[in-house]
Design a protein around this nucleic acid. Structure first.
Lengths: 201, 201
DNA sequence: GCTGATTTTTTCAGGACGCGCAAATATTCT
DNA sequence: AGAATATTTGCGCGTCCTGAAAAAATCAGC
């Protein structure tokens, strides 16, 4: 990777870090883009070359996007063959993989704190999840051989994203056992859905 | 209801209507608050006395909030005793009741059109659904005797809201049979969730 | 229907956001 | 080193959204 690319990533991280830190210190509406840019040693205009809005800098980009290999395996019916269990596997890997939870525990903790303290960020976050949901929906559709815009697949993906949302809200990120805790909650949640809406209840 | 109150509601409707109409005509970013206010014959500042943001005027307030009586009945285990079926009943009544779908078919159709055409509105809409979801979660918790912040109840509510979201996306609002179509889709979606996550599959 | 109290609307000023544009600066390639 | 390319920056601009105080409308009581 060339110098140019490295510098860009550094600036991006600097901006994001400054945005998060300042917002946690003072609150979202007491921090201006100008201050964030100054903190990262770039001009205010440059900030908008990296992020479309102040909120975007706080949420960051892809919250959950599965590894292509995992996605492939899921589509083909793996790894266990049981739908629920494979979905848990896919989602956990999306969270735990590179760029995911385990790699950036500190950032994830901060983001959680931000979402708690700054309600205005919630819609932005939900929008990101919605994008991820669509990808998941097509994966589910492909696994079951349904058309891409299949209603059932979309509902399942929506429920899954809802499970993710409520799970990450509860898992203690700082903890080393967070991944296992998340996996456990996923399973519980899915079983719970099966019981609540299943015939035998 | 006094004159004052009536005028306020009229202004509110005028603003909302103007916002929707102009946005459908020209697109969200080609319409200014000033134009919307002018169309409703009030000052731009008055617009912000009614809506916090331009987007708020387009989405409107409560998308789904169940009637208090229905909510009560659901909490007490009614009307049929079957969880899935009662949930369908509650959600349908939330949509179809006064202030809901059936009462404002034209507006609902327009809002759907807006959400299709203006992606920036989606996060706002999702935020509204999230608020409604919390209310639903506590209702579910109360019905099952769980504590208010019960994980299972929240997951179920989240799945239910996801079902609503995908359902309203598909139901043809103009149609007179929309309510029945929605009820049908709700049932299908819940059964689908039960099968996908249930033990027997 | 007049009067004073309350609520709403309006005017005004101003900070901040976010974007288009063109000049300046930094990196890459040959 | 010099040309080609990509990024940063400064500037201007329109818009959003808010506070405060003046002006207008509505209300309650007589």
């Amino acid at each position: 990777m060339g110098l140019r690319e490295r510098k860009k990533q550094a600036t991006r991280r600097a901006l994001q870090g400054a945005a998060v830190r300042l917002t946690l210190e003072r609150g979202l509406e007491k921090v201006t883009v100008e201050e964030i840019a100054a903190e990262a040693d770039v001009s205010a205009r440059t900030f908008f070359n990296y992020f479309a809005t102040k909120e975007d800098a706080l949420i960051g980009d892809a919250p959950i996007s599965p590894d292509e290999a995992d996605r492939e395996e899921f589509i083909e019916g793996g790894p266990t063959g049981d739908f629920s269990e494979d979905l848990v596997h896919l989602l956990i890997n999306s969270l735990a993989g590179p760029g995911g939870l385990a790699a950036h525990r500190a950032e994830a903790t901060q983001r959680k704190e931000l979402l708690d303290r700054e309600p205005q960020l919630l819609p932005v976050f939900l929008g990101r999840l919605h994008s991820a949901e669509q990808g998941l929906a097509t994966a589910v559709a492909q696994r079951t051989g349904a058309p891409e815009d299949d209603f059932r697949s979309q509902v399942i993906a929506g429920a899954a994203m809802s499970v993710i949302r409520h799970t990450v809200k509860r898992v203690p990120y700082g903890d080393a056992g967070d991944i296992e805790a998340a996996r456990d909650l996923f399973r519980k949640a899915f079983v719970n859905l099966g019981e609540a809406f299943g015939a035998t209840d």
